[in-house]
Simulated assay, not measured.
Amino acid sequence: MTVSISGPGEPITLDIAAPIASAQDLLPVRVPTTRRYLMCPPTYFTVEYAINPWMDPTRPTSTTLAVEQWTALRETYERLGHQVEVIEPVPGLPDMVFSANSGTVIDGRVLGSRFRAAQRSAEADHFRRWFLGAGYKSVVMPTAVNEAEGDFTWTGSLLLAGTGFRTDPHAHGEAQEVLGVPVVSLQLVDPRFYHLDVALFMLDDQSPTPLVAYYPEAFSPGSQQVLRRLFPDAVIANDADAVCLGLNAVSDGKHVVMPLEATNLAEQVARRGFEPVFVDISELRKSGGGPKCCTMELRG
């Protein structure tokens, strides 16, 4: 069978070799849920320092192209029926575009961020003030280093929490107390995948059995065992998927917005009944970011 995938330019068709032999082989019916996102335009985007292996200040960057790619991402969400809120960018904060790093929102409770890198520390207060201005009543700023949805992934029932390069493990306990949800810690071991959201993402957080995709080699052996126990039916990404930041994707339960280079991962999620939607994030990837990095979900 073939599956057509939308994206920039001409539609892409993937050939799924396995035939549908019986009713048991039919693709599951995936139902999207409307989401609300907070994004920040990359008006001042550049790479002027290096705080992860993707960043090289000597490599040319184009703010204009970054804005074009970000705009296409925002328009993709809106075309899929989602609501996008926008925070104003601030001069001198080129990574503010990566809004996922500045807050975790569950049931209307907000846990802000505390960045490890001094270059990004000022971002946290701009987002704190946005939340207060937007009417959020419970906004708590962390005491431990906490890079928010960069290292926190909500499954619908528990919070997966990464550590190893950015977020302090003490932030995991703080998140549990502030957000009132159970937390499972995961150890990251590959510096290329310095945040949880470049190594794992939720495909479906609404079903009784959540479904994730992840790259095992990004995690310690013990964390790999935890993921296998929690998600025995997970989609397993390969190295090619991981190094194009294919796992820095955003799913609404049906549509999976992902980097256009992640074709193997796209084939796998299509086989599970999801619809991949490709976007070009080549310029934003120069800072180590992709669709999810640019997208904070506002839950409740």
Rank of each mutant, 00 (worst) to 15 (best):
E68A: 12
N146Q: 11
D56T: 10
P94M: 02
M141N: 14
V279M: 06
S287M: 05
A144C: 00
G289C: 00
D233Y: 08
R36D: 08
V269T: 09
A199D: 12
D107E: 13
D252S: 11
N264M: 07
V139C: 05
I281E: 02
P57Q: 07
P57V: 01
T43F: 00
A148R: 13
P191A: 06
P259D: 13
T64Y: 09
T2M: 11
R79I: 00
A234W: 04
V139Y: 12
M258Q: 08
A117P: 08
G92Q: 07
Y215W: 14
G162M: 06
A161K: 13
S121A: 15
L14N: 07
R114V: 00
G273S: 06
A199Y: 02
G222E: 14
Q206C: 08
S185K: 10
V90D: 02
F152K: 14
L188T: 12
V90I: 13
T13C: 10
Q176F: 02
V243H: 06
M296A: 12
V105I: 10
G135F: 11
S223D: 03
G300T: 15
G289I: 00
G108S: 08
R271N: 14
T2Q: 10
P41G: 07
E149H: 12
V212F: 08
E174T: 13
P53C: 05
L65E: 15
A270D: 09
L245F: 03
T155V: 01
A117R: 09
C244A: 04
E174I: 05
A237R: 06
F193L: 06
V183M: 14
D15W: 07
R166L: 14
D205N: 15
D190E: 13
T295S: 15
V86F: 03
G253C: 08
E174N: 12
W154N: 12
D233E: 08
P291C: 02
L227I: 02
L227D: 09
L186Y: 04
T163I: 02
P60K: 13
V183G: 13
A50W: 03
D204I: 02
G246S: 07
V47M: 03
M55C: 01
H255N: 15
V279L: 06
M39R: 08
A234E: 04
A240P: 02
L265V: 03
T104E: 04
L73G: 09
R30V: 07
D204K: 06
D205M: 08
R285P: 01
D280E: 07
T155N: 10
A144G: 05
G273T: 05
F219Q: 01
A118V: 13
Y49W: 10
Y49T: 08
T76M: 04
K292F: 01
E123I: 01
E88K: 14
M296I: 03
V277D: 11
Y136T: 09
A171S: 15
S207L: 00
L260S: 04
A50F: 00
Q83F: 00
W130G: 10
G289Q: 02
E217N: 08
Q187D: 13
F193V: 04
S6Y: 03
T295V: 01
I51D: 13
A17L: 04
A122Q: 12
T153H: 08
P57C: 03
A270L: 05
